[in-house]
């Protein structure tokens, strides 16, 4: 019987830079998305956190893009993904190629997060200019940026699925998995970074995170089941990958959920929130590593398959 996967596959050698990029890209998208939704649907008490997230998102996207560029075989030609090298400045865009679409998403997200970043930097201590309460322009920017944040968090899963690699190309649930995980890790980053988090904002963020972790757990299980025999060979067959998925589920999803429900286990809200968020980040990293290692076998030393 022929195998369920294409035996001619060649791993692309996407190792640590890409694992880090996928992880950080998810956090970045999630951070801006949470800020946008707080801006759109939250209240006055959330404004400080919105501003802090805006201060965070733009440096993070710069760092993410840096990781992506470093990983290229010819980093100096990274612009060829955005503009047509021979017909500058015509844009280079192939909507059916997730990597091309991803470059556009990165550019769009970069532009929006830059505007929000400037707005946050230059309005210290006063009411913000663009993102002030009730500003229609601010709301539009938040809405578009929030959508771009969702796209940034999820397109990497779509990109992996549109390949002929086992595991990545096997189950289409990978894109949904990355959306939930990315936004959840973005919220975790805000919960860690915010030194003074109003209780009302914390409760909102944790509640949204609980939903997302539930969705993520469900999607992860469906993803693993739909891998079928490919999963047996490329997941179950690699102890490291099994371990990483276990870390994702136990450390990254179940424990934070428990801490959100029972903060007393760690002595109170403040510690429990920080610990749950840190664990969620560990889980998000383990998930990206596990998925990228599936057909490539990335160990700490690099690609091993």
């Amino acid at each position: 019987m022929p195998p369920d996967f294409n035996p001619s596959f060649v791993p692309p050698q996407w190792a640590w830079w890409v694992v880090l990029y996928f992880f950080l890209g998810g956090i970045t998208g999630g951070t801006y998305f949470a800020a946008a939704w707080l801006d759109l649907f939250g209240d006055r008490g959330d404004r400080g956190i919105v501003r802090m997230a805006h201060l965070l998102a733009f440096p993070l996207i710069l760092l993410s893009a840096g990781l992506l560029i470093v990983d290229l075989g010819r980093p100096e030609r990274f612009l060829n993904m955005i503009v047509q090298s021979e017909r500058f400045p015509l844009p280079m865009f192939k909507p059916y190629s997730p990597m091309s679409a991803g470059s556009l998403i990165l550019a769009l997200f970069g532009a929006i997060s830059f505007i929000s970043f400037l707005d946050a930097v230059f309005t210290r201590g006063r009411e913000r200019w663009l993102h002030r309460a009730g500003s229609v322009v601010g709301k539009v920017i938040s809405f578009v940026g929030g959508i771009a944040g969702l796209a940034l968090a999820g397109y990497t899963g779509w990109l992996l699925n549109v390949t002929n690699e086992p595991v990545w190309g096997t189950s289409p649930f990978i894109s949904a998995l990355f959306v939930f995980s990315g936004i959840s890790t973005g919220i975790a980053a805000i919960l860690i970074a915010a030194a003074r988090l109003p209780d009302s904002t914390r409760v909102k963020l944790e509640e949204a995170d609980n939903y997302l972790m539930g969705f993520e757990l469900l999607t992860l299980l469906v993803f693993l089941l739909t891998l079928g025999s490919v999963g047996v060979r490329f997941v179950v067959g690699q102890p490291l990958v099994v371990l990483l998925f276990a870390v994702t589920i136990i450390v990254g999803l179940l424990l934070p959920f428990l801490l959100h429900l029972r903060p007393r286990l760690l002595g109170g809200h403040r510690t429990a929130t920080a610990a749950a968020a840190a664990l969620a980040l560990v889980g998000g990293f383990a998930l990206r590593w596990a998925v990228l290692a599936g057909p490539q076998g990335i160990t700490l030393q690099g690609i091993s398959l």
Partner: peptide, 29 residues
């Protein structure tokens, strides 16, 4: 071949995320 299923599932997840977050934020309000 995976563009459509993967894109649709990603979109569904994005909508669900948006709704769940809206619910969480509004419910609290």
């Amino acid at each position: 071949r995976n563009n459509l299923p993967s894109g649709l599932l990603g979109l569904a997840a994005a909508v669900l995320t948006g709704l769940a977050s809206m619910l969480a934020f509004r419910k609290h309000r």
